[in-house]
Design a protein around this nucleic acid. Structure first.
Length: 421
RNA sequence: GUGGGUGUAGCUCAGCUGGUAGAGCAUCGGAUUGUGGCUCCGAGCGUCGCGGGUUCGAGCCCCGUCACUCACCCCA
């Protein structure tokens, strides 16, 4: 049998990329802390029904992209394809609204969608998300978006601009959809094959088609913004004014739509520039979903949130400066000193130092070569002669200097070397 | 699900109009037997994705297949 391989579209992160990912997660937590968001964790597996009800039955995700299975012939379960559904489920399950009027949560973790992999699109990918429950006003949207933009900047994304749209409430959307179909239906022959299909399944999607023939038709289509009621419009205007005041770069994009059914009113997206992301240019998507908590069995509760694609963010943002590496490499000069070298290494580790050894019994030369390779700044040479005298050789690998230090003075000497630089 | 591209050492790749495999990096060893980095010398490492075909002979040609990848679709 051939060697096992990682499942298609699912990837290992080796240490260099893991460091980048972990750094981004740490930055996200730090920014969230300033906005007073707390982190929650929910299961990777949820009842299939949860996603069908929240994301929408006729969405691509639910129709063909979910990893679903029946557990022991009993329960229909699914690997989560996105984060909001589980977070809302947890919010309802724990009746969090009874504890506090407004809840601010972040989450991060793997998501699963069975799509054809491409640049920036994987079957297991990771999202950094935030949800704000309990505040119906546009300033909540603005504060959330401000947090998002701040994070993206601190993560190292060069130019960040938020694309904004409003889908209105349920009635506005229904009216608009009707008007749009009425406009598109007679022009059906002019549309691309994909859009002709969309017209029946999800007409709003025709709006953001990339096909040139579709764009021409869409250019003169009715605009969702003309169908908003007074409250919808006030919400959108309030959000734009707030973003202006908060100096968050944003642009109204009336053709912006999303693939999930649960959004109301505010919809936003952040895209990469210059093709770093290939055809998958969205690094973050979000919006308001005022009806979702209620449909999941909770009280009517307004909410707004976003999700960032970690892998796409990594494509967009430069990796962080490398963290400080190994402090001390303990070398056993001869095979007989290996155990004592291990003891010394242990003592230094207890001091909080990062200590590496190579106790395979190789030559002094090969051990020092390793010390150099791993970027250690100090090497500690443990030899039989020195051990007999209760000392070790402390070598500064950058300066190439070496001196003899008594074992009892070792910690102080190393501390001095470290602070010297 | 649809279309294109690519598959040669651990990694990045070279390999002329078919003659039975190479470089750099990495790994390991050595350059007066207890001293790294630079340099030099050397070593190991390849079912040339897999299967079939054409041919005296295929990594190079043909067919199939699988994988990866890019684009479409969709989305983070």
């Amino acid at each position: 049998m051939s060697a096992p391989r990682a499942v298609k579209g699912m990837h290992d992160l080796l240490p260099d990329r893991t460091a980048h990912a972990a750094w981004l997660e740490a930055r996200f937590r730090e920014v969230a802390r300033r906005w007073s968001f707390d982190e929650i964790r929910t299961p990777v597996v949820e009842p299939t029904e949860l996603f069908v009800r929240s994301i929408g039955e006729s969405t691509d995700i639910v129709e063909k992209e979910m990893y679903s299975f029946v557990d022991k012939g009993q329960d229909a379960l699914t690997l989560r394809p996105e984060g909001t559904a589980g977070v809302v489920r947890a919010y309802v399950e724990h009746a969090v609204w009874t504890q506090e009027p407004v809840t601010r949560w972040i989450y991060m973790g793997p998501m699963f969608r069975r799509e054809r992999p491409a640049r920036g699109r994987y079957r297991q990918f990771h999202q950094l998300g935030a949800e704000l429950f309990g505040d119906p006003g546009p300033y909540a949207d603005a504060e959330l978006i401000d947090m998002l933009v701040t994070f993206l900047r601190e993560a190292g994304v060069a130019d960040v601009e938020v694309l904004l749209n409003s889908l209105g409430g349920p009635e506005a959307r229904r009216a608009y959809r009707h008007a749009l179909v009425e406009y598109l239906e007679p022009r059906r022959p002019a549309l691309s094959a994909d859009s002709q299909r969309r017209l029946a399944s999800n007409p709003l999607r025709v709006l953001d088609s990339k096909a040139p023939e579709d764009r021409e038709v869409v250019a003169h289509a009715p605009r969702i913004t003309d169908f908003l009621n007074a409250e919808d419009r006030a919400h959108l205007d309030g959000l734009r004014a707030a973003l202006d005041r908060l100096q968050v770069p944003h642009r109204l994009e009336p053709t912006l739509v999303r693939g999930l059914d649960y959004y109301d009113r505010t919809l936003f997206e952040v895209r990469g520039r210059g093709g770093e992301l290939g055809a998958q240019d969205a690094v973050c998507g979000g919006g308001r979903y005022d009806g979702l908590v209620e449909t999941m069995g909770g009280p009517p509760t307004p909410a707004v949130g976003f999700a960032i694609g970690l892998e796409r963010l990594m494509l967009l943002a430069p990796p962080p400066p490398p963290p400080p590496g190994t402090d001390v490499f303990v070398v056993a000069v001869g095979a007989a000193e290996r155990l004592e070298a291990a003891v010394i290494a242990r003592e230094l580790r207890a001091e909080g130092l990062s200590v590496e050894t190579d106790l395979r019994g190789g030559s002094l030369r090969s051990q020092l070569r390793r010390a150099d390779r791993v970027g250690a700044r100090l090497a500690l040479l443990v030899g039989s002669d020195e051990l007999a005298r209760g000392v070790v050789q402390l070598r500064d690998l950058r300066a190439g200097r070496q001196r003899e230090v008594g074992r009892d003075a070792l910690r102080a000497a190393i501390r001095a070397e470290r602070s010297a630089t």
